[in-house]
Design a protein around this nucleic acid. Structure first.
Lengths: 117, 117
DNA sequence: ATTAGTAGTATACAAAAGGTTAGTGCTAAT
DNA sequence: ATTAGCACTAACCTTTTGTATACTACTAAT
């Protein structure tokens, strides 16, 4: 009976957090988003902007970011070979609360660890 | 010259976010914290409360949580063998903004994906 | 005397995430 | 005619993360 922390209410809180962490987590997600902040870019432009990312990983990240609605992939068929543009959506802006909360806490925490040492 | 998104200002934002994500990320961190919310517990009690975690991983998680100041480890030498208690610190409460921001966004995002489909 | 519980550690393994290298078919420039 | 850029993909390897199982030295209960 004391075991209700593994119950409904707890998961209703932890599962969305898990979703959110999954979506923005990993080594590159936020850096790719950040690389697109000042306008649309093409694949190789992003790769140059996000220092160190490989084509394989960038390709995977862009697909996930697209699935989550953060990035729009725009193909221009006018020219051949095709030109592909990537662009942040408005929806990507919905992250800003989360990102600021994380940035503030992270800054505070780093200071705290330095003081404690 | 257009390449200042890999510069100082950007890292000053992304690095603390990375720190924060590292501290609360992974499969178990938040579940262990959550398992301790309603008072102190002993090692095996936590393991039973956090369903599915192995002793090896729990041991590692508790060490990291202690290093980050979220958990206090209290050894009672009165009895032998020693009794060890784990307890959330006040500092763990400093996460609440971050966690609520994540939970809110995660809930919203899940709904959005359901609608979009 | 066996069993179960305590607080973990040791060893080995599997899965996931990410990195490295090479290559596709196309075009435009040298 | 070679070279370089484009947008990727395939194959393979390493690192990180998490899992499974067993084991320690101790005590208390059956």
């Amino acid at each position: 009976m004391e075991n209700e922390e593994s119950g409904e209410a707890c998961n209703a809180f932890l599962n969305p957090i898990g979703d959110a962490l999954y979506v923005i987590g990993g080594k590159w997600k936020l850096r790719v988003i950040s690389g697109l902040r000042d306008g649309s870019k093409r694949f190789n432009e992003i790769q140059r902007a996000v220092h160190g990312i490989s084509a394989r990983v960038l390709s995977a990240e862009l697909k996930e970011l697209e699935l989550n609605g953060f990035v729009k992939r725009i193909v221009h068929h006018q020219q051949t070979p095709v030109v592909v543009e990537y662009q942040l959506t408005e929806y990507a802006g919905s992250l800003s609360n989360v990102l600021h909360a994380l940035a503030d806490w992270g800054t505070m925490h780093r200071d705290k660890l330095r003081r404690d040492r």
